[in-house]
Amino acid sequence: MGDFITVLEDVNLEFFDGEMVCVLGPSGCGKSTMLRMIAGFEPISHGRILIDNEPVKGPSANNVFVFQHSGLLPWMTVWENVQLGLRQMEDPAEQAAQIQEYIDMVELTNFEHHFPHQLSGGMQRRAELGRALAVNPDMLIMDEPFTGLDFLTHMKMREEVVNMHEFLGKTTLMVTHFIDDALIMGTRIVVMNDTPAEVKLNILLDSSHPRDFSRNEELRDLRDEIYFMLGVNYAV
């Protein structure tokens, strides 16, 4: 029995358990809004959003949102932030071990007691990812998670998220405006066009990782197609 999400208005989509869904589209087309509606942050006026056949009523720890700009609470250390998702654990020793495990997983060992402002942009994203994973949610929802990172950090984070997805198999829903990110990371790519949002492309990508444009003609063709769809003549 898979998770599925239906966004109805001009948009009708269905996603399944374990997918890495990358949503592309021009800025302002409503892709972030769609994400926030799925997360329960914004009410919907028409239509339905169902997760596991249940309508979304509001935010839930089953679907953890990773914010475009840092969603870490700046007055809490990395440790305290990660602890937020493990508050209900009763045994403090067990809780501490879990917190440490997730901090180690996102490679922030020795930065437990740093405040967010003391971390680089990439480390902040990793801390937020660790906090989200610590909740052990059914689904991760990421809103342009690489925006504002420098090029190399971006590449590295992308690799880490792909590895994390392969390792944990968490259903991941991600909005991005980097077409290459979607092609490298996604198991499903959704392209939306300008407001009113409408799905232009909804395609499954099953090629294995690592994905390399220079050796994969299918990937290259798809890239050209998406660039064209978004109004860029890639052959310039």
Binding site: A39, N63, F67, G71, L84
Partner: peptide
């Protein structure tokens, strides 16, 4: 965003006060 984080992590009203509003 911090209130959305609080909602996402199912903060109680007291937690919203103690962990978000007061420190902020």
């Amino acid at each position: 965003t911090y209130f959305q984080v609080a909602a996402n992590f199912c903060f109680s009203r007291k937690e919203v006060l103690m962990k978000v509003i007061l420190p902020a």
